[in-house]
Every structure is written in C-alpha cells, then in structure tokens.
C-alpha cells in the first residue's frame, strides 16, 4: 500500500505563506478529517498533497518519492482529489465517471472492457447506479456529489482527498457521504476530508488534523483532541459530548461571554 506523506511542507499563495512546516501522513485504512477556521490552509493542504499547488519547502511524497519527480498521470493514478466546487458540465453521469479512467488510458485511449467494468462498479459503490444515464446539470446537489464520488472511485487510487465533501448537502446526504468515506477507509484506502462540522468530524473520523494560520496545531484521534480541549481554544467554542447508544455524540456550544457579544 502506497502512502502519501507531507514532510515539513511550506506553500505560498499569492506571495503569502499559507502552509508552514506541516508534517502529516495520509494512512491507509484511516479517515482523516482536516478541521480549522476559515483561511487556516485546509484546502491548500489538500491541493498541495494532490500535486495541484506548488510547494516551496519540504516535501509531499508518495512512498518517499516527491510529487514533483512524478508525472501528472503518475500522481493521478495514486491520488484522487474531489473539488469543493462541483461544476456540472454538459454531459451524462456515465461519461463523467468514465473520465475518471483518463489517467489509466494510454494513447489512443481506447475504452476497454475493464474500464467499463470499473465505471459500472464505481457507480454502484457510490450509490449512483440509477443516475448513470442522467445529465449532470439536471442532478440535485446530493446526486451530483455521487457522480463526483464515482469518478474518484473509477480513478482507483489508494488515496482520496475530499475538499469539503459535505458542502451544499442536506444533513442526510452529509451522513451518507461520510459513511461512504468511512467504508472506503475500512477497505484500506487513505481518505482525507476537509470538514467544517466539528461534531461530524469527531464522530466519523479516525484521526483529526487541526490547522490554524497554516500551521498544523495538533493531529490525533478524536479522543486525544477532545481530552486536550484544543479545539475549543482554536475555534472559540466549547466542544462537549454525551454518551448515547454506546458511542460518544459531540456537540458545540458558544460560551456565555461570547454569546453576550453576539
């Protein structure tokens, strides 16, 4: 199993340093949640890890090989990235998912039986089989997310990076997406997701990375982070939990002084 790792990574955006000395590994079999206030560098971290954003110092490496020594296609065969803004180009869902095979196709890009099989399986796994012949732009937000998920699955990567996969989705679809992410991790993939919903992140993730101002403040299991009360400090809210139906359920509340300010 190939592992993606960031080592002392620094990256700039428009001349400003947005990631500072970040070291983080994307471990197989684990759902990693990236949390942090707006502008803390979560999306840039994922983009850099996917080879979409250049880094200045340190390294992003696949099994020790720096991304900059790999071709785009080599990276795309190992790391899938799901964008936060989910455009709806004018095409059918099956066609979109078939584009997930692009990194695996050599000239003259003939669609093989194997590709069709993988696409069908990806649609099944993303719970989107019934969408295959629909047009992307006619889908609801939740359905569109399934198409994007299926495309990422068709890419057959060991590492899947999701930039706010629950954005624009209703609560039921948010749960569905995170359950699927969890299932992929259980199948041995390394899955990382930028999440804004802290209770959800704590409930679903195997490990949480907390960022602030481009720095990785802490990475650890939800248990560890909760015990350290570091989240409350960074977000200015109080994270609490109750024992319910044999799991911890997390919720956030605003401190009394804070709410007076609001």
């Amino acid at each position: 199993m190939i592992m993606l790792e960031l080592r002392n990574l620094s990256a700039q955006y428009g001349g400003k340093e947005v990631l500072k000395n970040v070291s983080l590994s994307f471990r197989p079999g684990e759902l990693l949640a990236l949390i942090g206030p707006n502008g803390s560098g979560k999306s840039t971290l994922l983009r850099t890890a996917a080879g979409l954003h250049p880094y200045k110092d340190g390294d992003a490496a696949l099994d020790g090989v720096p991304l900059r020594n790999l071709s785009r296609k080599e990276v795309a065969r190992k790391v899938a990235w799901m964008p936060q803004s989910r455009n709806a180009p004018d095409m059918t869902v099956w066609r979109m998912v078939l584009h997930g095979r692009f990194p695996h196709m050599e000239y003259p890009r003939h669609i093989r039986r194997e590709d069709r099989k993988i696409v069908a399986q990806a649609l099944e796994d993303a719970d989107g089989a019934e969408l295959s012949e629909r047009l992307l732009r006619e889908l609801s937000g939740g359905e569109r997310q399934k198409a994007y998920l299926a495309t990422a699955l068709a890419q057959q990567c060991d590492t899947i990076l999701m930039d706010e996969p629950t954005a624009y989705l209703d609560i039921a679809h948010q749960f569905r997406v995170l359950s699927l992410a969890k299932r992929l991790a259980a199948d041995g993939k390394a899955v990382a997701a930028v999440l804004h919903d802290l209770p959800m992140a704590f409930q679903f993730a195997d490990r949480i990375a907390l960022l602030r101002n481009g720095q990785l403040i802490r990475a650890g299991t939800p248990e560890e982070l909760f015990a350290q009360q570091i989240v409350s400090e960074v977000f200015g809210v109080t994270l609490q939990r109750v024992w319910n139906r044999s799991v911890w359920r997390y919720y956030c509340s605003v401190d009394r002084e804070e709410s007076a300010l609001l």
């Binding site: 080879g51 785009r72 180009p89 584009h99």
Partner: peptide
C-alpha cells in the same frame, strides 16, 4: 471541460 484544477487532478 471539467475545470482546470479537476482536469489537472485527473492527470
């Protein structure tokens, strides 16, 4: 046509 970033992530 899928968008520049996404295209890049597909290799």
């Amino acid at each position: 046509s899928l968008g520049a970033d996404y295209a890049q992530s597909l290799g």
